[in-house]
Design a protein around this nucleic acid. Structure first.
Lengths: 156, 156
DNA sequence: CCAATCTCATTAGCAGGCTATCGATCAATG
DNA sequence: CATTGATCGATAGCCTGCTAATGAGATTGG
């Protein structure tokens, strides 16, 4: 029963390590890749917006952005209209990494699921989705609009 | 195609967070739980042995053991026969946590897979196993002796 | 027997995740 | 207009994982 959870953890760890190794060859770490995947589509988001899309906390994005800035992958610009906001903009270096990284990602996914039939992939997909629904549905950890609220549900 | 990987990551993250939260109620964090699960069965292992069984590196076990020692969950004893070895022994406090934590783990696994049929669980299990086999078998991520040096695949 | 080597645990330092807190800025209200 | 409250990024500090380098102790070869 709990065996499935162990397999899930193990599989995810292997995939994460493989992804990190592949992307590191292009100067991008696994956590940075998540930010890139969003910014490649929509440049100039704020840390908070990114955190919401990536389902991580704002400090995680802030720290990752700092490392990416040091690596020359993005720059911070204060929003002229709202001084609280910081907008993250990709550099040409980050844009240049898009193709090879997307390709590496595709190859990894293909390799990992190479021994699965299409039906097995569909089954896997739906089973994972059910688990996610079960974990997020009955006890929603996030309210739309609210972000990273604590899990405290007891009254005041 | 890469969607399955995303779902896998997301599911694992949700489960990990839920497990950590549940175990924290018993004074045990998620990483410490892994060590406990092994030591409950076989007390007095060394950090290296534990690392091998848990499929993590030795420093990870050493650091976790240090935190667990501070939390009063285990004690370090030098092996009398071989001064290089350190044996990790559980305290009564760690033994007392076995029941409630096993129970919490069981409940979590049950909850997470509650909406799956037995057949779906079997499919999920085998699909994950295939991915793990694929990631560990055909292309061993590390050659013994080789050190995946990153960011430089080009010639001399 | 002693020096070189090997084996282990530890330490240092990084990445990536979290919560809690701070400081700055904006918005609303008196 | 000034104060107050909300919002947002940044910082501090923790846990968990990794690699590389250190150091103490065992083995082995000469």
């Amino acid at each position: 029963m709990t065996e499935v959870l162990r397999l899930l953890t193990r599989a995810q760890k292997l995939l994460r390590a493989a992804a990190d190794e592949a992307m590191s060859r292009h100067g991008v770490r696994i956590g940075q890749n998540l930010v890139l995947e969003v910014l490649w589509q929509t440049d100039g988001l704020t840390p908070g917006e990114l955190a919401a899309r990536l389902q991580v906390t704002t400090p995680t994005v802030v720290n990752t952005a700092t490392r990416m800035e040091a690596a020359g992958l993005l720059v911070r610009r204060r929003d002229p209209a709202d001084g609280r906001l910081v907008r993250l903009h990709l550099t040409p270096r980050a844009r240049a990494a898009e193709r090879p990284i997307a390709e590496a990602r595709r190859r990894l996914a293909e390799h990992a699921t190479a021994t699965l039939t299409d039906e097995e992939r569909r089954h896997l997909h739906s089973a994972l989705q059910k688990i996610i629904d079960q974990m997020t549905g009955p006890t929603p950890p996030l309210d739309p609009g609210e972000h990273t609220r604590s899990t405290d549900q007891g009254g005041p």
